[in-house]
């Protein structure tokens, strides 16, 4: 696969595989990432610290005391050739979302600006299974897509200083869940009680790049019930996920 080499100072190199957000490019990025990660874990690539997949590129962080940029490129190149041999399995999650009242502060505005009814906004958002292209912005924050064109809206003109934890949001062709309270400019259409980032778990981030996510509407009372169960440690995340073949 063709790629561009982008130099990020003396600590990282980004390998860029395309100019757009697409499932095909993302699939390739994640394939290279998975294999490089495995080699790092086995100690086969001394001097390479970690790699970070994004929509269309992989950023490889290295130790400048051990490797020079040319050496990093040479080490990574073979993984790019093999990149398509990604595992055929992925984890698919189904998250409960309350799309009403205080849990959905922007949903009326979204309905108005898209010319849809609130019911249609909820229905369309729930219809698709989204790919987790990458994580970033906040620990555990996954960029999910692609969202149905009818829901495409830009970010809010005035970003909020404190988006509540668990907010389910849309912006342009993407949707996401805010794992913690944070400033943010996306349109908030619901809230999930699921904990997306919890350091008490073996893997603090619930989602990883390559996972799939769908949403299911729940009532406010069901939301409260799940929230209470999670707080008490009585909620099994296994209920929300299944392992699927990658199509």
């Amino acid at each position: 696969m063709e790629y561009r080499v982008l130099i990020l100072g003396d600590r990282a190199i980004t390998f860029e595989f395309g100019a757009v957000i697409s499932k095909r490019i993302s699939h390739h990025v994640l394939g290279v990432h998975a294999q490089l990660k495995e080699s790092i874990a086995q100690g086969h690539v001394n001097g390479i610290i970690e790699s970070v997949p994004t929509f269309r590129s992989l950023t490889v962080h290295y130790n400048p005391l051990v490797l020079l940029p040319d050496e990093v490129e040479a080490l990574v190149a073979p993984y790019i050739k093999e990149g398509d041999a990604v595992s055929g399995l992925c984890t698919q999650w189904s998250f409960p979302v309350c799309y009403s009242g205080e849990f959905a502060p922007d949903i009326e505005d979204v309905a108005q600006r898209t010319g849809l009814s609130i019911e249609d906004v909820i229905k369309i958002h729930q219809t698709d299974v989204y790919d987790a292209f990458m994580l970033g912005f906040l620990p555990g924050f996954a960029f999910l897509g692609l969202v149905d064109e009818r829901l495409h809206l830009p970010r809010r003109a005035e970003p909020r200083t404190a988006v509540p934890r668990g907010s389910v949001a849309i912006a342009d062709q993407l949707t996401a869940i805010y794992p913690t309270v944070s400033p943010g400019g996306w349109n908030l259409i619901g809230t999930t009680p699921i904990e997306l980032f919890d350091i008490a778990q073996k893997d603090a981030a619930l989602l990883k790049a390559g996972d799939r996510v769908c949403f299911r509407a729940v009532s406010e009372s069901e939301y409260r019930k799940i929230q209470t169960a999670i707080a008490a440690g009585d909620y099994s995340y296994q209920n929300e996920c299944q392992v699927k073949e990658v199509a």
Binding site: L8, T14, T59
Partner: peptide, 10 residues
């Protein structure tokens, strides 16, 4: 740009 990886110092 389409969001991509950064490092401290970028």
């Amino acid at each position: 740009i389409i969001s991509d990886g950064v490092v401290p110092g970028a």
